[in-house]
Amino acid sequence: SDEEKKVRDQAKRLGVNTEQLLKWARRQGDEDLVRIVERLLRS
């Protein structure tokens, strides 16, 4: 999905993997991002 591509691009920009991005999203309190990243991790 578009959202998932955006998440992957953001992880690349930050230089982190998906698990690290999830931690980062939780720290930001970004519920939408957390949900998308969790979906990516499960897929």
Rank of each mutant, 00 (worst) to 15 (best):
S1Q: 08
S1E: 10
S1W: 10
S1L: 08
S1I: 10
S1M: 08
S1H: 11
S1R: 12
S1Y: 10
D2L: 12
D2Q: 10
D2H: 11
D2P: 11
D2N: 08
D2G: 08
E3F: 12
E3A: 13
E3H: 11
E3K: 14
E3M: 13
E3N: 12
E3I: 13
E3T: 10
E4W: 13
E4H: 11
E4P: 10
E4I: 13
E4T: 11
E4K: 10
E4R: 12
K5Q: 08
K5F: 05
K5Y: 05
K6T: 06
K6A: 07
K6M: 11
K6V: 07
K6S: 07
K6I: 09
V7Q: 05
V7F: 07
V7N: 06
V7A: 06
V7L: 09
V7E: 03
V7G: 06
V7M: 07
V7W: 10
R8V: 07
R8G: 06
R8N: 05
R8F: 11
R8S: 05
R8Q: 04
D9Q: 08
D9Y: 03
D9V: 09
D9H: 08
D9G: 08
D9T: 08
D9I: 10
D9F: 04
Q10V: 14
Q10A: 13
Q10C: 15
Q10H: 09
Q10W: 14
Q10E: 09
A11N: 04
A11M: 14
A11C: 15
A11D: 03
A11F: 07
A11P: 05
K12Y: 03
K12A: 07
K12V: 05
K12Q: 05
K12F: 03
K12R: 09
K12E: 09
R13I: 08
R13F: 04
R13G: 02
R13T: 03
R13Q: 04
R13M: 05
R13W: 07
L14Y: 03
L14N: 02
L14K: 04
L14W: 07
L14P: 03
L14Q: 02
G15V: 11
G15Y: 07
G15E: 03
G15I: 08
G15A: 05
V16A: 03
V16Y: 14
V16R: 05
V16I: 13
N17L: 14
N17W: 15
N17I: 14
N17Y: 13
N17V: 13
N17G: 07
N17E: 03
N17H: 06
T18G: 06
T18D: 04
T18Q: 04
T18E: 08
T18Y: 15
T18V: 15
T18N: 05
T18S: 07
E19V: 08
E19A: 07
E19C: 15
E19Q: 08
E19L: 09
E19N: 06
Q20H: 06
Q20S: 04
Q20F: 09
Q20W: 13
Q20L: 09
Q20D: 11
Q20T: 08
Q20N: 07
Q20G: 06
Q20Y: 08
L21Q: 00
L21F: 07
L21T: 00
L22G: 00
L22Y: 02
L22T: 00
L22M: 03
L22Q: 01
L22K: 01
L22A: 01
K23L: 13
K23C: 15
K23I: 10
W24M: 05
W24V: 12
W24A: 10
W24G: 10
A25Y: 03
A25F: 13
A25R: 00
A25I: 13
R26P: 02
R26W: 06
R26F: 06
R26K: 12
R26Q: 13
R26H: 05
R26T: 11
R26L: 09
R26A: 05
R27D: 15
R27I: 14
R27T: 14
R27W: 13
R27L: 15
R27E: 15
R27M: 15
Q28A: 07
Q28N: 10
Q28H: 12
Q28G: 01
G29V: 14
G29S: 04
G29Q: 07
G29Y: 14
G29W: 14
G29H: 05
G29N: 05
G29R: 05
G29D: 02
G29K: 10
D30R: 12
D30N: 13
D30W: 15
D30Q: 08
E31M: 13
E31H: 09
E31G: 04
E31P: 11
E31F: 11
D32K: 11
D32L: 14
D32R: 14
D32N: 13
L33G: 00
L33P: 00
L33N: 00
L33A: 01
L33M: 02
L33H: 00
L33Q: 00
L33R: 00
L33D: 00
L33I: 03
V34H: 01
V34A: 04
V34R: 02
V34E: 02
V34N: 01
V34K: 01
V34D: 01
V34F: 06
R35P: 00
R35W: 07
R35A: 05
R35F: 04
I36S: 02
I36A: 09
I36N: 02
I36M: 10
I36W: 11
I36P: 00
I36G: 01
V37I: 13
V37M: 05
V37A: 01
V37Q: 00
E38H: 01
E38F: 01
E38D: 02
E38R: 02
E38Q: 03
R39F: 07
R39I: 10
R39Q: 12
R39L: 08
L40W: 10
L40H: 02
L40E: 01
L40A: 02
L40N: 00
L40T: 01
L40R: 01
L40I: 09
L40Y: 10
L41P: 00
L41E: 01
L41Q: 01
R42M: 11
R42Y: 09
R42I: 07
R42C: 15
R42G: 07
S43N: 11
S43M: 13
S43Q: 12
S43Y: 14
S43D: 10
S43V: 12
S43H: 12
